[in-house]
Write a protein that binds this DNA or RNA. Structure first.
Lengths: 126, 126
DNA sequence: TAATTTAATGCAATTATGTCGCATTAGTGT
DNA sequence: ACACTAATGCGACATAATTGCATTAAATTA
C-alpha cells in the first residue's frame, strides 16, 4: 500500500516540525490552521508511526502524543528515552535520558513507554 | 474524611490479593463474583491509590491498571519499577527491574510510569 | 491528456474508559 | 437508637480514539 503525498500529511508534519515537543491530536488540530477532520489527523499520525516517522507516547493521562523520530535522532537522543509530561504547561518533552533495563530474554519486548510527570524546568521557575 | 469498611472494598482487595498481577477495573469486575457498579469499583480503586494501598499503572493501551503496593514490597521490588504488559495474555506484571533516571533538578518529578509491552515469559514459551 | 486505480478524506456513528451529580443506603461513634 | 456522613448505584456525561461508508483526489497507465 503505497503512500500518497497530500496537503494534509504535509500540514501535520509541518506542525510537528515547528514544535520541539510531542503533540496530541488535539494540539495539532489547534495549531494547524486549515480545517482537517479529527479522524483524518489520527489516520495520518498512525501511518507516520507505522512508517517510523513519528513515535507514539502514551502518557499517564491516557492520551497519545506524537513526536518526530528525526528530531530525536538529530539531538542524539537514545532510541528509548524518557518523556516528561508537565502538568502545568501540558506538554510532553522527549528527554535525552536513556531508558535502561535488563530482563530475562524469555520476555519479548516490543514497545517501551516511559513517562515522568510533574513540573518541567520552564514551569518550575515560577 | 475517614474511610469505612465495606464489603465492596474487601471484595476488591481480595481479588487483587488473589492475583499476582496488576488488574484493570474490567478484569476486577469480571473476577469479583458479586455485582458491584463500575463507578463504585473505580472509586474504591482511586481511594486505595490515594491511601497508598495500590499503585496505578497507565499502559500504552491507555488503560489504567492497579497493583498492590504491599505485594511489591514483599517481593522487594524497588519503589519505581518497570511494568510488563503482555499482548497475548493481556496482563500487566510488576517487574523487579528498577527504573533509573537522572535529570536536572529543575524538573519536579511527581509520577513515574514505565511500561514495557510485548510477550511475557509465560506466553513466549509457545 | 483522459481514463483508471485505489489511497486518502470527511462525516457520522460507535466503542471504550473513566468521571460526576444526585438520591439512597449503610457504616461508625455517641 | 440516633445522627452524621462516607459509600453506593444509577444514569448521564466527557473525552479519546476508531471504524464504516460514500466521496475525493493522488498517482499510474493508456
Amino acid at each position: 500500500m503505497k503512500r500518497r503525498n497530500t496537503a494534509t500529511k504535509e500540514a501535520v508534519l509541518s506542525v510537528l516540525n515547528s514544535s520541539d515537543k510531542a503533540m496530541s491530536q488535539g494540539a495539532i488540530e489547534k495549531k494547524i490552521g486549515v480545517n482537517i477532520n479529527r479522524a483524518t489527523i489520527y489516520r495520518v499520525l498512525n501511518r507516520y508511526c507505522e512508517d517510523g516517522v513519528l513515535h507514539r507516547i502514551v502518557a499517564d493521562n491516557g492520551k497519545q502524543y506524537f513526536a518526530l523520530c528525526e528530531e530525536c535522532d538529530k539531538h542524539r537522543k537514545p532510541l528509548h528515552h524518557f518523556h516528561f509530561r508537565c502538568e502545568k504547561c501540558e506538554t510532553i518533552e522527549c528527554l535525552p535520558e536513556p531508558v535502561h533495563f535488563s530482563l530475562s530474554n524469555a520476555y519479548v519486548v516490543e514497545k517501551v513507554n516511559c513517562v515522568l510527570t510533574g513540573i518541567c524546568k520552564d514551569c518550575s521557575k515560577f
